[in-house]
Design a protein around this nucleic acid. Structure first.
Length: 447
RNA sequence: GUGGCCGUAGCUCAGGUGGUUAGAGCGCCAGGUUGUGGCCCUGGAGGUCGGGGGUUCAAGUCCCCUCGGUCACCCCA
């Protein structure tokens, strides 16, 4: 009698095989696009030393990190010295600093791995989820041109994923900081709060944000000027450039940020990226404050409520905690698990088997024939499953149907005497009798 | 970390004011004559009503505690 209820920790996504196939296809597409832009794969261990991972003791981050230790260490009363990675950026920083001497700069890496966060799980919030990250990291300085490459990658990626139209929103944190300091919002703490409120313009509307800012102690006139400049929403093409040029260059940060954004826009145009996919939106800020320049967010048109599905930005120094070298970079990240889960809810991902053919077994005398046919199909490159025990044909067909296997091979006594087989297509409900020697070629024609 | 809602078969849920052997749909299994699936028909398996305590002649139904799930906020992917 079972005594343990089979259940898993909340906040993890576990799929049935047909959905898992769809997920892997999506991951394959992402990887192919990353590689097509010349990014190299790396993989880091799930567990990092706590002294490495938890150096930036951000209060919230620390609260969400899963600590780990061996049972032996625990029995001896030691504090956990290991922790599960909560993102891919900190491990990248450690990786680059550790292997700096052997890497080829500018270093372009992609990384597709799970991360863990001890959150209160809710819809779209997971404790274990896959991130797909790319970053370009260089020593001393990194050209602004790399900032323009990111939207090209995002655009190619979401076009290939074929899940509808999307908008890549750009902003520049330097510009925002300059704007805030021009408005007298100087403290980094207050700036952080203001940027987070600005980020909510989309969701909460201008009035709610104005009230929230006023509650932070900002004067009404300042709030008004801020929302006038940052609040016109996403602007595309000429309108975006004109809006930027009309901004007052009140300080160095503002003019530098604005120039960076303008040059990114001009590079994007040169690359031939679809201009309808690109918008400038001065309200996006990204929560993380290690971004220093360009920032990106991507939303799916018509599904803005999902939030950003691909975000990133430019940072001044990736690994200041681990290395004396100055390592500026720019990168983007896809919260893949959330994206996949939401797309599945919206019915935007398919579900299929990766098994292409089922070879049935009608009677034991046909065992060697069926085994040979399955072998022929596999040699020809088709994913083939074979039924190993005889059973009613109706059951074998039902099995294939339920499993999502499109083709079924039937070779009973009659067919064997004729040197033929039945090839049934479950999708079209059609069936042809063909010579056994034609099997691979016929399957190839159908699939 | 703060606050709201919910816990009855594998899943989604019914079960007025407490009262005989707790139900439905879907799913699952087996049949509907010998080798053709998704439809239909018949039959079957499956629940100590999250757990513990209390009130009562009697509790899935009322009260308390506890565990679990879920949503919003915070923060984020």
């Amino acid at each position: 009698m079972p005594t343990v209820v089979p259940r898993k920790m909340p906040g993890v996504l576990e799929l049935l095989p047909r959905d898992q196939v769809a997920m892997q296809k999506m991951l394959d597409t992402i990887r192919q696009v990353f590689e097509s832009f010349g990014f190299l794969p790396i993989s880091t261990p799930a567990l990092e030393l706590t002294e490495v991972l938890l150096t930036k003791t951000g209060g919230d981050t620390e609260r969400q990190v899963y600590l780990a230790q061996s049972t032996g260490a625990r029995a001896q009363g030691h504090e956990p010295d290991l922790a599960l990675r909560f993102d891919l950026t900190v491990p990248l920083a450690r990786y680059v600093a550790e292997h700096e001497g052997q890497l080829n700069f500018p270093f372009r890496r992609y990384q597709i791995q799970p991360v863990w966060r001890g959150e209160a799980p809710q819809r779209g919030r997971f404790r274990e989820f896959i991130q797909c990250d790319i970053d370009v990291v260089d020593r001393d300085s990194l050209s602004i041109r790399y900032d323009a490459e990111m939207p090209a990658i995002i655009s190619e990626l979401f076009t290939r994923l074929d899940i509808g139209n999307f908008t890549i929103r750009l902003n520049n944190r330097r510009l925002l900081r300059g704007l805030l300091s021009e408005l007298g919002v100087e403290s980094a703490d207050l700036q952080g709060h203001v940027l987070r409120e600005l980020d909510k313009l989309d969701r909460d509307g201008i009035d709610a944000v104005a009230r929230a800012l006023a509650a932070r102690g900002m004067a009404a006139t300042v709030v008004d000027r801020l929302l006038t400049m940052a609040g016109p929403g996403p602007l595309k093409g000429i309108a975006a450039a004109e809006m930027l040029k009309a901004l007052p260059a009140a300080n160095d940060a503002m003019s530098q940020g604005r120039d960076e954004l303008l040059s990114v826009l001009s590079m994007i145009e040169m690359q031939g990226t679809d201009p309808n996919r690109i918008a400038v939106d001065l309200s996006i800020a990204r929560g993380l404050d290690y971004y220093t320049g360009t920032v990106y967010e991507t939303t799916l048109d018509g599904h803005e409520e999902l939030g950003s599905v691909c975000s990133g930005g430019r940072y001044d120094d990736l690994a200041s905690l681990y290395s004396k070298s100055r390592l500026p970079g720019v990168g983007i990240s896809i919260g893949f698990t959330r994206l996949f889960d939401q797309l599945r809810d919206l019915g935007l991902v398919g579900s299929a088997s990766n098994v292409q053919v089922l070879v049935t077994l009608i009677d034991d005398d046909g065992l060697s024939t069926s085994l040979a046919l399955a072998s022929v199909l596999r040699t020809a490159g088709y994913n083939t499953e074979m039924t190993m025990t005889t059973g009613k044909l109706s059951r074998q067909l039902k099995y294939a149907d339920k499993a999502g296997i499109p083709l079924v091979v039937i070779a009973g006594e009659d067919e064997r005497q004729r040197g033929t087989l039945q090839l049934r297509n479950l999708l079209t409900k059609t069936q042809v009798e063909i010579p056994t020697s034609d099997l691979a070629a016929t399957v190839g024609r159908i699939l």
